[in-house]
């Protein structure tokens, strides 16, 4: 450990935390790999003269021979495997990051309000969370995606609805102790309204915890999406997602493992990166926790 010099002017805690995160080699490598996968998924398909839903009848079930244009071969319908996996990645990654963001925002606001207001309101709000926690996750998410009628939006809503609980509980605990602090009391004495205090004092002070747990939400959402698509409840053919591509790969694994390995490997790699990033964020933002 080097001796800590006085930080230069303008270095906030947040900057220090960010610097600590950057010194974590494994996490930074994961950020780079993840960024590369995101760029590949969103820009890669444009490099090919066809889309993932175009069938090429001259190359049906072509093997992975690394020959242009079907680098990893095609599936039973002559659709290019690589392009389908990349397009599936767009769906899975978008749902993952957007879902974690929405679930996080709902959870943070709910928890901040419950913790700040306290009393009966808090008791009622937290009893609701407790009841929802008692529900079997798998059953809830399957039922909700049926209720919303299937499709991307239904899937998204079902996942968000089941995953906002953990951030709510964590933020509520923090908001409870923040509500007693002098600066909050000063704000209240100064005539600040409840909603303004929640948004400008409580929420920003919970941010580092939220970032740590929010980063764990992303892999959870991606996993839920692919899990449901794998069971045939989430995203359906012909639209590709990693879940339904893995399902197709499983059906064909006795003849051709490639259909399973490419989407499965990419999904595992993304989840691995996200977990390493979450670990790094926790070490950087919450050093007492380890």
């Amino acid at each position: 450990m080097s001796v800590d010099l006085a930080p230069p002017r303008g270095t906030s805690t947040f900057h220090l935390q960010l610097r600590r995160f950057r010194q974590n080699g494994l996490s930074m490598a994961s950020v780079v790999v993840l960024a590369a996968i995101v760029v590949l998924c969103f820009l890669g398909p444009y490099a090919f003269p066809f889309s993932g839903e175009d069938a090429d009848f001259d190359f049906i079930s072509a093997p992975a021979a690394f020959i242009w244009p079907h680098l990893f071969g095609t599936d039973d319908f002559g659709r290019d495997l690589l392009v389908r996996v990349l397009e599936g990645g767009q769906v899975s990654l978008t749902i993952g990051f957007l879902g974690a963001l929405v679930a996080g925002v709902i959870g943070v606001l709910y928890g901040a309000v419950a913790g700040y207001v306290g009393g009966r309101t808090d008791g009622f709000m937290m009893r609701l969370v407790e009841i929802l926690y008692g529900f079997p996750y798998v059953i809830l998410v399957i039922l909700l995606s049926l209720l919303f009628g299937g499709g991307n939006v239904a899937l998204f809503s079902a996942i968000v609805f089941t995953l906002w609980l953990t951030p709510a509980v964590i933020v509520r605990a923090q908001a409870q102790s923040l509500a007693q602090r002098e600066f909050v009391q000063a704000a209240r004495a100064g005539g600040m309204t409840g909603p303004a205090i929640v948004l400008q004092h409580i929420v920003p002070n919970c941010m580092s915890t939220v970032i740590v747990y929010g980063s764990l939400l992303v892999p959870e959402v991606i996993l839920s999406e692919s899990f449901l698509s794998f069971l045939g409840i989430g995203i359906k053919e012909p639209q590709a997602s990693w879940g339904n591509l893995i399902q197709t790969g499983t059906a064909a694994m006795d003849s051709d493992l490639r259909l399973l390995l490419l989407p499965g490997g990419l999904l595992a790699l993304v989840l691995l990166c996200l977990n390493f990033i979450a670990d790094g964020l926790r070490d950087a933002f919450d050093p007492n926790d380890r």
Partner: peptide, 22 residues
Amino acid sequence: GVVGIAIPIFVIGPLLQATFAL
């Protein structure tokens, strides 16, 4: 720990099937 958390069971399951069964 890392492998068990990162690789979903619907990927590792078929892989083990392909290896140990097929």
